[in-house]
């Protein structure tokens, strides 16, 4: 196919795929006034469509808080349409649970609402550090579907805890020490005891590592002690068995660490360890081969120095 023809086709496909109005995302009310859109379990890589994590919103009597905005402007717009189908109240806050591109690149969809963008105290810095490579990679993965997506930094940051009043209900935000990333935030809706964990909890999808995994493991008992009746994980189905879900995650971490430490001790190189480490966990998780190999690539060089 000539490049010219390819371009024409690309434009046609884009025109069909991006209607002028945004189709509202399907959302589910998992607790009174708490709505979640569950993304698909796709890898964050070529072939990714920008909609892989859990995003959603909480509605109070004064207004709405958005919790994560999706991986593209378009996904953010569709989330906004979903909100507008349910309420006309103002969108007061857009909260980002962490820096990963699948959670933040829909932020620009809410600019017209003039919300307070909220994140961990270290989130602005993390965004700045990754801006170039995130823009480049997401452009390569998503092409035109990434058009208009922007990195919008928090205008209010959380160091410790912060309460946000939505009218008749309060969200309690907690900033965590390095774990899944260096800037993880959880959101607890006190009214319904619903905990948005961000990617501190993975359900079904293989947990992916980036920040400080050894510290993440140490924080799990604290996370499990939060006064919640259900959790909305960063990826996977929201669940009332959320403490057991943390146990599953903990088990994967421990098996992987044990296997890697044993491999290093025996002189098994990293490339080999990618094939074998935590192999027994494969049946329990989706996207295991891709994500587990990346986790090995990250952890092995660190554990070599223990």
């Amino acid at each position: 196919m000539t490049p010219m023809l390819q371009n024409v086709l690309l434009i046609l496909v884009m025109a069909l795929a991006t209607p002028a109005w945004a189709e509202p995302l399907p959302v589910k009310e998992v607790a009174a006034g708490v709505y979640v859109h569950q993304g698909a379990h796709e890898d964050l890589d070529a072939g990714y469509h920008g909609d892989i994590c859990n995003i959603g919103f909480v509605v109070g009597s004064k207004g709405v808080a958005v919790i994560d905005s999706g991986g593209t402007l378009d996904v953010g717009r569709r989330l906004r349409e979903a909100i507008r189908k349910i309420t006309d109240l103002p969108i007061l806050y857009v909260i980002n649970t962490h820096v990963h591109p699948d959670h933040i690149f829909g932020n620009a969809a809410f600019r017209e609402d003039n919300p307070v963008y909220v994140g961990h105290a270290k989130l602005p810095e993390a965004m700045e550090r990754r801006k170039e490579s995130y823009m480049r990679n997401n452009m390569a993965w998503l092409g035109e579907a990434f058009a208009g997506s922007e990195m919008i930094k928090p205008t209010r940051t959380v160091d410790g805890t912060l309460e946000l009043d939505l009218g008749g209900r309060t969200l309690q935000l907690t900033a965590w020490p390095p774990a899944h990333t260096h800037a993880d935030l959880t959101v607890l809706d006190r009214a319904t005891a619903t905990l948005w964990t961000g990617d501190l909890l993975f359900v079904e999808r293989t947990p992916s590592m980036d920040g400080d995994t050894l510290n993440w493991i140490k924080l799990i008992p604290q996370l499990k002690a939060l006064p919640a009746a259900r959790a909305i994980p960063g990826h996977g189905t929201p669940t009332e068995q959320w403490q057991a879900a943390f146990d599953n995650q903990q088990r994967y971490f421990q098996v992987l660490l044990d296997d890697l430490r044993a491999a290093i001790k025996k002189g098994v190189p990293m490339e080999k360890a990618m094939e074998t480490a935590a192999a027994g966990e494969k049946a329990h998780w989706v996207l295991f081969d891709n994500v587990n190999r990346r986790n090995v690539n990250l952890l092995y060089p660190l554990l070599e120095w223990e």
Binding site: R129, R130, S133, R136, N137, A140
Partner: peptide, 10 residues
């Protein structure tokens, strides 16, 4: 591969 050379160091 992607992104091993640049970025920011803190």
């Amino acid at each position: 591969a992607a992104g091993g050379c640049g970025g920011l160091v803190d």
